[in-house]
């Protein structure tokens, strides 16, 4: 048995930028977060809000991890420290996961100004969005200047995570045939910066032109409006990553100058609060599945009560017994 350090004590060390304390608290948050952990997180939340949070998403194989690696190099060269939360999918069968981002980000380790943490979509018992965003908070409180969240752009949870960033980067790869699909899926709208990766490939121009054309159509006229840039990058030729960092920095400046940052922060707060509330409700629902819920479900199947009515009844009853920690 080992000596378990209280989470509050770890929180103190997080503020001092102690990497091991950050790592351990992320583990505790991922494992469900009992009240002792939540208390420490609540305390640390007061020290957050200094990092610029960048969400990076795109279809599998678009080159997100490679791009993150290059981007981290750019930030380090500009003198900034970077935290990375890389999310990989879990096996739907065993719940386990092979977190492979470490391989692609291999050349980044052994730099105290870079902290990389891999997370599995299902390894998180308390819900992916909450754990990932708590991890972002921990890196923020730990003093990292920039925090990058990398996730596959499929699934609502993943999209929500990216939307809880100050700047959202969508990575598009040429030749995947998903240009139009991406637009359908609404990925076009969430991007503050578009990247076309693998720009050394001859078919990348087509993707760049298509994206630019789509962006033109959705453009509103007026002054001081953010024009979503399309940045071509190539890890093969080592080009475009400086431009990408500059585009993210310009977006950050734009948020401050236009005052949009206030709306953005409000949006992030809303996303996070609603996400946690959803989880608490879902968890409580699962908890008392035997007694009252069963009763209500029976009524619904027998057409005595409609699903909406049952849900309202359930929420009213839940109000009295809500389990805050789960």
């Amino acid at each position: 048995m080992i000596n378990r350090i209280p989470s509050m004590e770890l929180a103190k060390r997080v503020r001092e930028g102690h990497l091991r304390a950050i790592a351990r608290l992320i583990t505790r948050v991922e494992s469900g977060g009992d009240p002792e952990v939540r208390e420490a997180l609540a305390e640390l939340y007061k020290s957050t809000g200094n990092a610029h949070v960048v969400g990076i998403t795109g279809v599998p194989g678009a080159g997100k991890s490679t791009l993150v690696t290059q981007l981290v190099h750019e930030y380090r060269a500009s003198g900034r420290t970077v935290g990375v939360v890389a999310i990989d999918p879990s096996s739907p069968y065993s719940g386990g996961a092979i977190l492979g981002d470490r391989i692609r980000m291999g050349d980044l380790v052994s730099d105290p100004g870079v902290f990389i943490r891999s997370m599995a979509t299902r390894g998180t018992l308390g819900g992916l969005a909450r754990s990932a965003l708590d991890a972002v908070d921990l890196l923020d409180a730990g003093g990292f200047d920039v925090v990058l969240i990398e996730t596959v752009g499929v699934g609502q949870d993943e999209v929500d995570i990216v939307r809880a960033a100050h700047t959202t980067v969508v990575v598009n790869a040429p030749g995947l045939g998903d240009d139009i699909q991406a637009i359908k899926a609404g990925v076009l709208e969430i991007a503050d910066v578009h990247v076309v990766s693998k720009a050394d490939r001859p078919d990348s121009n087509k993707t760049i032109q298509e994206l630019k054309a789509m962006l033109m159509m959705s453009l509103e006229p007026g002054e001081g409006i953010w024009r979503v840039p399309v940045v071509p990058t190539s890890s093969e030729k080592h080009t475009g990553f400086g431009e990408l960092m500059a585009a993210i920095d310009r977006h950050a400046e734009h948020l401050e100058r236009s005052g949009e940052i206030t709306q953005r922060r409000h949006q992030i707060a809303l996303t996070r609060v609603v996400k946690v509330a959803e989880e608490i409700v879902r968890d409580n629902f699962a908890r008392d599945s035997r007694s009252q819920t069963e009763e209500l479900l029976k009524k619904v199947t027998q057409r005595e009560l409609d699903p909406h009515g049952a849900a309202v009844t359930l929420l009213k009853a839940m109000k009295e017994t809500i389990h805050e920690a789960h």
Partner: peptide
């Protein structure tokens, strides 16, 4: 096999140094 047993596995890839591996293991906790 470990993944199929429900564990989260971080694989480092080939040709790492002890320093790299230890730093990564600490960050990944």
């Amino acid at each position: 096999a470990l993944r199929d047993a429900g564990m989260d596995v971080v694989y480092t890839g080939l040709h790492r140094t002890p320093e790299e591996v230890v730093d990564a293991a600490i960050q990944e906790d």
